[in-house]
Simulated scan of single mutants.
Amino acid sequence: MSTWWDTRRNARLAELASMLEFLGAEPVDDPGVGELAHAAEALAEEYRTSDRGHTVHRTGGLLQQAATALHTADRLRGTLIPVVNHHLRCAAVALSHARSCLHGLALPAAGTVPPA
């Protein structure tokens, strides 16, 4: 495996692990693609079955998209490294959108009046 591709893959995995932690996953020291896929899938199930509203359900759908991309990257293992990185990038985009969805749910700071 090329050093450049390996470096890109490892950086992307660390980024994905950080994004999943933000969304509620357990921290992983040395994440693998399969581990991240299972974490995203478990989170997706939690979000989709939540009774906290449409935005949370939408976030669950985006987490499921990320899990699907991660499972695809995991199935390819070490073959077709550019394609693996493409699927990792797709997972990162889905997680970024999921994070954006949750920013809209942030509670107002204490002492402030929520917008009407």
Results as ranks from 00 to 15, higher is better:
residue 40 A to T: 10
residue 17 A to V: 03
residue 95 L to H: 04
residue 79 T to G: 12
residue 97 H to P: 00
residue 19 M to R: 15
residue 78 G to N: 14
residue 79 T to D: 14
residue 76 L to A: 14
residue 103 H to V: 07
residue 47 Y to K: 10
residue 70 L to C: 09
residue 1 M to Q: 07
residue 45 E to Y: 07
residue 100 S to A: 14
residue 63 L to T: 07
residue 61 G to W: 03
residue 12 R to I: 03
residue 88 L to E: 08
residue 55 T to E: 05
residue 15 E to W: 00
residue 7 T to V: 11
residue 35 E to T: 12
residue 39 A to D: 06
residue 71 H to T: 15
residue 110 A to H: 02
residue 101 C to D: 08
residue 72 T to I: 12
residue 23 L to Q: 08
residue 60 G to S: 07
residue 55 T to A: 12
residue 52 R to K: 10
residue 81 I to P: 05
residue 102 L to A: 00
residue 105 L to T: 10
residue 82 P to S: 10
residue 54 H to E: 09
residue 91 A to H: 05
residue 61 G to S: 10
residue 1 M to S: 13
residue 14 A to R: 13
residue 115 P to L: 10
residue 21 E to Y: 02
residue 47 Y to D: 00
residue 23 L to W: 02
residue 89 R to W: 08
residue 13 L to F: 04
residue 106 A to L: 11
residue 105 L to D: 02
residue 49 T to G: 02
residue 96 S to F: 06
residue 22 F to M: 13
residue 114 P to Q: 04
residue 6 D to V: 09
residue 102 L to N: 11
residue 34 G to V: 09
residue 16 L to N: 06
residue 22 F to W: 07
residue 38 H to A: 14
residue 47 Y to Q: 02
residue 75 R to A: 15
residue 37 A to I: 05
residue 13 L to R: 11
residue 24 G to A: 09
residue 114 P to R: 06
residue 97 H to T: 08
residue 69 A to G: 13
residue 81 I to N: 07
residue 105 L to Y: 00
residue 55 T to G: 01
residue 8 R to M: 11
residue 28 V to M: 14
residue 103 H to A: 09
residue 3 T to V: 11
residue 28 V to K: 12
residue 95 L to V: 08
residue 4 W to K: 11
residue 25 A to N: 08
residue 43 L to W: 01
residue 54 H to P: 00
residue 14 A to Y: 00
residue 22 F to P: 00
residue 111 G to D: 08
residue 36 L to K: 10
residue 112 T to K: 03
residue 51 D to P: 00
residue 101 C to E: 10
residue 104 G to T: 08
residue 21 E to T: 14
residue 9 R to F: 02
residue 27 P to K: 15
residue 53 G to I: 03
residue 62 L to G: 02
residue 19 M to P: 00
residue 75 R to C: 12
residue 51 D to G: 11
residue 20 L to H: 05
residue 96 S to R: 14
residue 13 L to A: 07
residue 80 L to A: 15
residue 25 A to F: 02
residue 111 G to S: 04
residue 65 Q to A: 15
residue 95 L to P: 12
residue 15 E to Y: 02
residue 42 A to V: 08
residue 84 V to M: 06
residue 43 L to M: 06
residue 90 C to G: 03
residue 113 V to F: 05
residue 89 R to M: 06
residue 99 R to N: 05
residue 46 E to N: 10
residue 38 H to L: 15
residue 80 L to M: 13
residue 72 T to C: 06
residue 110 A to R: 03
residue 22 F to R: 15
residue 80 L to W: 06
residue 87 H to V: 01
residue 32 G to Y: 02
residue 60 G to T: 07
residue 30 D to V: 12
residue 87 H to I: 00
residue 36 L to M: 11
